[in-house]
């Protein structure tokens, strides 16, 4: 399996080159952002960081305070579909180049990936140690008033392992599997 190396901030050209099924390792800065962050952005609050070219990670990590800083104890992806009402807007308004999560997203996000040049990267759900192992450093945190799992954590990652499951050309592995599995299971009913 060939691995594509990707750094953040990413360019539209780099993202457009990716296709469903590509294995990618991401190096650079990631910002976590899940339910409460997306809700705030949707309500028009200005993000505390520049999201241009960045990738948002749907993740609520386990963080422990040690020696005046934070150490990440676990950091796998959370289910992305809950951000389906908001994600397209964040892609449109904030110049992000993609999101990392699990379970895939729906037609609004897929259309936005195509229109604005973004990808959906799938991390392995539940694999919180493999993911945390690739986080070199916790560089900071914003919106801590949302509570630790919902805050925006700034994560310095090296070779963070993901698979492209929705690309900027309208391809979605989730749509394919949903349709084929529905055919099979409905035939059993």
């Amino acid at each position: 399996m060939a691995v594509v190396e990707l750094s953040t901030p990413a360019t539209e050209e780099q993202i457009r080159a990716l296709k469903v099924g590509d294995t990618v390792e991401i190096t650079g800065l990631l910002y976590t952002g899940r339910d409460a962050v997306h809700h705030r952005l949707h309500n028009g609050e200005k993000p505390p960081v520049d999201l241009n070219g960045m990738i948002i990670y749907h993740c609520g990590p386990v963080m422990v305070e040690e020696n005046g800083g934070y150490v990440c104890k676990a950091a796998g992806p959370t289910t992305s579909i809950r951000e389906e009402p908001y994600q397209w807007e964040v892609m449109r308004d904030h110049g992000i180049r993609g999101v990392i999560g699990k379970g895939g997203m729906g037609p609004k996000t897929l259309a936005a990936c195509q229109e604005y040049g973004c990808c959906y990267f799938h991390a392995i759900g539940g694999a919180a140690q493999v993911c945390a192992d690739r986080i070199e450093k916790v560089l900071g945190v914003d919106w801590m008033d949302l509570g630790s799992p919902e805050a925006i954590w700034h994560l310095q990652v090296v070779k963070f392992p993901v698979i492209v499951t929705m690309d900027s050309h309208g391809g979605s592995l989730h749509k394919e599997v949903q349709e084929s599995s529905a055919d099979v299971l409905n035939s059993f009913m």
Partner: peptide
Amino acid sequence: ASQPICQDT
């Protein structure tokens, strides 16, 4: 490592 298998405990 005695650390959470998944971050959502």
